[in-house]
Design a protein around this nucleic acid. Structure first.
Length: 592
RNA sequence: GCGCCCGUAGCUCAGCUGGAUAGAGCACUAGACUUCGAAUCUAGGGGUCGGGAGUUCGAAUCUCUCCGGGCGCGCCA
């Protein structure tokens, strides 16, 4: 039950009526105005800018936005749910709702449980959405930056699914480039090492990490000594395949530790060596059919001069037709496909698989790649498929206010797994989501395990635990009371007349709106901030019960008050639980 | 040189797709525990929203332009 959406509909109806009387155009764009909580609670429960937004279209019949607002407000005042509807300022319509409306909100939350907040059927157009995230190269363990994209993508997928969309979580395995050959050579060295050969220093250009030692041992177990001393051509392919599998197993385990499971792992190799022929060639051919491929020369890039720049004619995609800065090469000078060409083919498979919305979650260092990818998707789908690229900024790992030192060349960096093991999944997930994706994130390993309000993870989880604590206390105080959601829904919710209680109910009422807005904007962090606000109001109200015991949730003298307040507490727990579930963070019954 | 992202309180950050007097936490100051868990809460000070111009009823939000920071700029992925 989304009161904001409901009143948007009612105002739209009023406008339609005015239009029918000939005083407004029939083809008004009713999606333009909003119904939102007013900034100042003294203004009421709902505010709308409808009259101001539509002022221009209303001009002939309504001299000012206020004139239109007055008419809308008058019609709203007839609504049985409306206490008052007033015009303020340049033409705001401020609505105060009857208490019965908020009682209905609470009952809806109690009746729907964890489904409360889901957009009602018809509120959103369900889409088939593919969220591609992580897609870390299978050459080593994931670092903290990968973790951010991983958590972001997963929570976004949760959010979109909750909002009613059909969501696929997808991982693109970059297993076809030169770097997996480097991986294979690095693993081969560890293989020789496992056979007892002295290998000395790992040569420059190979991966030095000790995590490959296990791969070397595994190669010996699987293949014995048959590759020792043999030329690279004999062992490269099998060693590569073995190493990629091992790396992907490691990455999947790291993801599992973050509670992340992908539905689809799409191999880059499949594009050229899968059972469906050369999909990259097919994608390029498709672009050619549309006249979007040509041979041409590119000017050398400005900025850093490139030493071995070779001016040559090459195969280019006309991405400039779609707003890119230059056309982009599809073939390397050695005749193989560029990464971009393969990525075009990959995205074509997504289009062909019937997704209406594609979301790619990338690191911010890939920002320069966005325009060309959007161009490709627009070209191949005739602009029917949306592509939204979400860039995740880097994570600054801190400890006690000091940056954590990482030396990459020695292979000594703090892995994602290290961090998860140290502070726990819930902390990692919540902190990663308690920031807009395109803002850099300071992650303090010391702070997130503190049990204090400095630590938003704890703060929100504690609020949930408190709701459960209240229910436990109530069960002790009233052993015979029916504490089911059904019983709460039958309670006399009119007894919730304290201001603090009213504030909490209003925050509950906002949850559906926050979900909808967050899903539409592809911004899961809004859920995290909303939960923090809710927790804050709950803790504040809790403490009021200290000075004024009559405000406590459990009142041993008055069972009727108690049950009404337990209904509120249960609704709060429901929303906290639903929100945390979207974030993939646990809602614990107690914090001990 | 060009493109993208960012710039909001001393610090870390929100700001609900253009709304009303710009918010929260930390830090600082002063308070509240025989409490349904004080692991919490209350109050106070603190701002040219990087600068300037524009768009309009109205701008932290949109446009332009400077300043500052980050990322990227054939054949890496």
């Amino acid at each position: 039950m989304n009161i904001f959406a409901e009143f948007h509909g009612r105002i739209a109806k009023i406008l339609a009526k005015i239009a029918a009387s000939g005083r407004l155009p029939e083809d008004l764009d009713l999606g333009r105005f909003v119904v939102e909580p007013p900034r100042d609670v003294s203004h009421g429960d709902l505010a709308s800018n409808a009259a101001m937004v539509l002022a221009k279209e209303a001009k002939p019949s309504f001299a000012s936005p206020r004139a239109l607002a007055v008419e809308i407000a008058a019609a709203l005042a007839e609504d049985e749910d409306v206490e008052t509807a007033e015009v303020a300022g340049p033409g705001f319509i401020n609505i105060r709702l009857r208490p019965s409306v908020f009682a209905r909100v609470l009952r809806a939350a109690l009746a729907q449980g964890r489904d409360f907040g889901r957009p009602a059927p018809g509120r959103i157009v369900p889409r088939k959405i593919d969220v591609e995230f992580v897609s870390a190269n299978p050459t080593g363990p994931m670092h903290v930056g990968h973790g951010r994209g991983a958590v972001f993508g997963d929570a976004l997928a949760n959010l979109l699914a909750f909002a009613g969309h059909e969501v696929t979580r997808e991982y693109y395995i970059n297993d076809a480039g030169a770097q997996v050959d480097v991986l294979a050579r690095s693993a081969y060295l560890r293989y020789l090492e496992a056979l007892g050969e002295p290998i000395g220093e790992i040569p420059e250009g190979l991966y030095p990490g000790a995590y490959l030692q296990g791969v070397g041992v595994g190669l010996v177990d699987t293949h014995g000594e048959k590759f020792a001393g043999r030329p690279e051509a004999e062992w490269l392919a099998p060693v590569r395949a073995f190493a990629i599998d091992a790396m992907m197993a490691m990455i999947r385990a790291d993801l599992a530790a973050l509670r992340i499971t992908h539905d689809v792992f799409f191999s880059e190799q499949f594009l050229t060596r899968g059972g469906e022929g050369d999909l990259v060639a097919a994608a390029i051919a498709e672009l050619e059919r549309r006249g979007l491929v040509h041979r041409g020369r590119l000017p050398p890039p400005k900025g850093q001069p490139i030493e071995d720049w070779e001016d040559r004619e090459q195969l280019l995609f006309r991405s400039t037709d779609f707003g890119d800065d230059v056309d982009r090469p599809l073939m390397k000078s050695d005749g193989s496909y560029t990464y971009f060409a393969a990525d075009i083919a990959y995205h074509k498979t997504k289009i062909d698989r019937g997704y209406g919305v594609l979301i790619d979650v990338w690191g911010a260092d890939h920002g320069g790649y966005v325009k060309r990818m959007r161009a490709a998707v627009e070209a191949l789908s005739d602009a029917r498929t949306e592509l939204d690229v979400k860039l995740c900024q880097l994570v600054k790992l801190m400890r006690g206010g000091e940056p954590v030192k990482m030396s990459k060349r020695a292979g000594e960096f703090v892995t994602l797994r290290d961090v998860v093991d140290e502070v726990g999944v819930d902390a990692v997930r919540f902190i990663m989501l308690f920031r807009k994706n395109d803002a850099t994130l300071e992650f303090d390993l010391g702070k997130v395990i503190e049990q204090s309000k400095d630590n938003p993870v704890f703060y929100v989880q504690y609020a949930y635990a408190r709701t459960q604590s209240v229910l436990r206390q109530a069960a002790l105080a009233f052993p015979d009371m029916d504490l089911s959601a059904d019983a709460f829904a039958r309670a006399d919710l009119g007894l919730l007349e304290d201001e603090g209680e009213a504030e909490l109910i209003k925050i509950v009422a906002q949850f559906p709106r926050v979900v909808e807005a967050a899903a539409e904007a592809h911004e899961p962090h809004r859920i995290a901030f909303y939960l923090h606000d809710l927790a804050s109001s709950f803790h504040a109200h809790w403490n009021r019960g200290k000075d004024r015991p009559q405000l406590r949730f459990v009142n041993e003298e008055r069972a009727s008050f108690t049950i009404a307040r337990l209904a509120l507490v249960t609704a709060l727990a429901t929303v906290l639980g639903a929100g945390l579930a979207i974030l993939g963070v646990e809602a614990p019954d107690e914090m001990r």
